[in-house]
């Protein structure tokens, strides 16, 4: 069974004149790293809000179709119940941090669930370690840098030990090295702990290499859904204008020039460099 499944999902915000997502049917399997992308306003964020019951419990409006997460019908559950299973990290960490110390912020969700003290200690420490901020645990979140704050936001979500973590452009305010480190933390969680990751991103140059499933949306609909190498090298993806990773573009251009490259389409500069080394050597 898929960990997330939507069937013919259509949703209109209160006061909206047309649906923000239209007839969306998608299956996400346990342990996948899913990248959701598409032009601004295509409905990416709206779709993510359906995964943890923010839609329809916080945002009202009109919802048709069905969302199932870990076998639970989302519409029948409250946000706090879904929060145990699906953690959401926003673009700007300042929107979700508020406590006086990093540790308290990370523990907040667990306190609300009434998790026993000892268990709480263990989970908070483990989340702080996984995100590399254990040494910052006594600092005030608002005094930290943007990158550190984003790690705190991720740690607070991790402490809940959700099966799925959804991140909506989590690094747009960070410098490139800070962003890269955050993506590596997320990738580690996926690979080592098997956490299912859903990442919303425009910048495929930085993120395509981590994904094993990509979903491209346009105007509220899913237009492409499948294996990243196949999808990102397709003509359709280029025409939608999602910003194909540069190494993938270079590969395509060289293929047109009849340079004989291997058949595995590269998604990162490392993969492309390795492939080119073979060609240049021979």
């Amino acid at each position: 069974m898929s960990i997330i499944e939507t069937k013919n999902l259509t949703y209109t915000y209160p006061g909206g004149t047309k649906p923000s997502i239209k007839d969306v049917s998608i299956k996400i399997e346990k342990g996948e790293f899913v990248l959701i992308t598409g032009p601004s306003g295509c409905g990416k964020t709206t779709l993510c809000r359906c995964f943890n019951a923010l839609i329809p419990n916080f945002y009202q409006g009109e919802l048709e179709g069905e969302v199932t997460v870990i076998g639970l019908k989302v519409a029948e559950h409250q946000i706090y119940e879904m929060a145990k299973h699906v953690g959401l990290v926003f673009q700007n960490p300042e929107n979700q941090l508020f406590a006086l110390s990093v540790e308290k912020d990370v523990a907040f969700g667990l306190e609300n669930l009434g998790v026993p003290r000892e268990e709480m200690r263990k989970r908070v420490d483990s989340a702080l370690n996984l995100t590399g901020i254990y040494d910052l645990r006594e600092r005030a979140p608002h005094e930290l840098s943007g990158g550190q704050q984003q790690r705190v936001a991720i740690a607070s979500v991790l402490a809940m030990q959700p099966e799925v973590i959804v991140l909506d452009e989590p690094t747009s305010f960070l410098d490139p090295l800070g962003a890269k480190r955050i993506f590596e933390v997320i990738y580690d969680l996926n690979r080592k702990l098997g956490v299912t990751v859903v990442l919303v991103e425009h910048r495929l140059d930085l993120t395509a290499k981590y994904a094993n499933h990509i979903v491209i949306m346009d105007d509220g609909r899913i237009v492409l859904d499948g294996e990243p190498r196949k999808i990102l090298s397709s003509e359709e993806a280029r025409l939608i204008g999602v910003g194909i990773p540069k190494p993938t573009r270079l590969y395509q251009i060289l293929q047109k020039d009849r340079v004989s490259l291997s058949n595995t389409i590269p998604l990162s500069s490392d993969e492309m460099a390795t492939m080119l080394r073979e060609v240049l050597k021979s």
Binding site: D205, L250, S268, S269, A273, L276, R277
Partner: peptide, 21 residues
């Protein structure tokens, strides 16, 4: 770049790895 927490562009990263050619 590293001192300024910046990562080189993708294309540059490829060429940095091919400089021995």
């Amino acid at each position: 770049l590293i001192q300024a927490s910046i990562v080189p562009p993708q294309i540059t990263q490829i060429f940095l790895r091919l400089s021995d050619f």
